[in-house]
Design a protein around this nucleic acid. Structure first.
Length: 421
DNA sequence: CTTCGGAATG
DNA sequence: ACATTCCGAA
């Protein structure tokens, strides 16, 4: 009983959480969250849908604009205008926590989040830890009651995500990798600007690096952000074991370790393209132009509200991660960093690996704008996904082999390994 | 154009 | 710590 409950709660929870970073959409989500408490899923969704309608407009706009803009800068004007609008009504991903929540009714939202968080977190006992890390820490050993040290990393990047009102603290303290993950879960960006090329392996491609960079810049309020700059940040991730580069393919990177519970949007089982064909990444998705020259972007409005949150520790199945925590918490599984001047032995940053990001299913998510939300199925799926996610730990640096390995692992794991559960 | 790191800076 | 900027070099 409690188990079920928790899951449900979680889901809701992240719905609200997600809001925070919602690039463009957020408010709607918040509302739902509130409702959640009182109502069961279906209702929740319905509500969300309603909420969505409002913002829907913006989203639409955004989408359109971005789509056209993505290809070239010529559309700058349009883009700018769009952005402006966006900003006006929805501060993209930035500070939704405070403002939005407040406006909407933080009272409600906050409580909900808080509660959930507490429940989940409480178990884990992670006080200042980022959601993702939370699990890991616990598993690892975490020196449980050692919050004595808390002072150590009080301000950590995503420390208070949970307890605080939302996830990322007020400003938008989302790391780039987090942002990317979110994007990958965002219907608006996912297939179009960024997409999984092999979800199991954590490999993704920045189709339209420019657009992604722009979004990132928007998020950080750095108008001048560009792929080159963002790329540098990305490169730093290699050393930190957060990302790896998939060589051969151009804008393709791989999460060294990816969250156990990411829910992938779009595609159902995905077309894992291993690395056989080097460059055929698109297929599977029927209609995305991606980088197609023609500017006719059909972008409809999928809008994407991505929700993400941390998963609760499944009650019945506690994730006993098998993660080798050799170096304490190194996410990257002790990957060797070539230079590694300093020995590792510390990985403060929340690595994606441990994080549990749960996303919402696709479908309609809350932002269905026009259509009414229906989500029973989705809910189920989400749950299932959450439970059945696999370990995909370590993604090493190198592609093909790794990929295959991952696949194998996955399969094997599903067969009997267990790890995750 | 993309990719890679070093270096300085916030 | 985590980027952002700038930069010379593949």
């Amino acid at each position: 009983m409690s188990a079920m409950l928790q899951q449900t709660e979680l889901i809701f929870e992240f719905a609200s959480d997600r809001v925070n970073n919602g690039l463009q959409l957020d408010e709607h989500l918040a509302s739902p969250a509130v409702i959640v408490e009182q109502i069961p899923h279906s209702h929740l969704l319905s509500y969300s849908g309603l909420a969505c309608e409002q913002t829907h407009t913006d989203n639409h706009l955004l989408t359109t604009v971005e789509g056209s803009e993505s290809g070239d800068e010529e559309t700058m004007e349009t883009l700018v205008a769009a952005e402006t609008l966006l900003n006006m009504d929805s501060p993209d991903s930035l500070s939704l926590d405070q403002q939005h929540y407040t406006q909407l009714g933080d009272v409600i939202t906050l409580p909900v989040t808080h509660q959930l968080t507490v429940s989940v977190e409480g178990i884990v006992g992670a006080l200042g830890q980022p959601q993702w890390v939370t699990l890991q820490r616990e598993t690892v050993a975490e020196q449980p009651k050692k919050r004595v040290k808390k002072s150590k990393r009080p301000e950590s990047p995503t420390p208070d995500i949970i307890f605080k009102r939302g996830k990322y603290s007020k400003g938008n303290t989302m790391y780039l990798w987090q942002f990317l993950i979110e994007l990958l879960q965002d219907r608006q960006a996912c297939p179009r600007y960024i997409k999984w090329t092999n979800r199991h392996a954590g490999i993704f491609k920045l189709v339209n690096s420019k657009a992604v960079a722009r979004l990132w810049g928007k998020h950080k309020n750095k108008p001048d952000m560009n792929y080159e700059t963002m790329g540098r940040a990305l490169r730093y991730y290699y050393q930190r074991g957060i990302l790896n580069k998939v060589e051969g393919q151009r804008l393709v990177y791989q999460f060294a370790s990816l969250p156990k519970d990411i829910v992938f949007i779009s595609d159902d089982e995905d077309q894992e393209d291993q690395a056989n064909h080097e460059d055929n990444d698109e297929e599977g998705v029927p209609d995305d132009p991606e980088e197609s020259p023609p500017s006719s972007d059909q972008s409809l409005d999928d809008l994407g509200s991505y929700e993400h949150s941390f998963p609760p520790p499944p009650p019945s199945s506690r994730p006993g991660y098998q993660r080798s925590r050799q170096t304490s918490s190194s996410p990257a599984t002790a990957q060797r960093r070539q230079p590694s001047p300093k020995s590792n032995s510390r990985s403060p940053a929340p690595s994606p690996a441990q994080c549990k990001t749960v996303i919402r299913p696709p479908g309609g998510s809350l932002i269905q704008q026009q259509h009414l939300p229906i989500v029973s199925a989705e809910m189920l799926r989400t749950l299932q996904n959450v439970q059945s996610l696999q370990p995909g730990h370590h993604g090493s640096v190198f592609r093909t082999a790794q990929l295959l390995g991952s696949l194998c692992e996955r399969q094997a794991a599903s067969g009997g390994q267990t790890t995750s559960q």
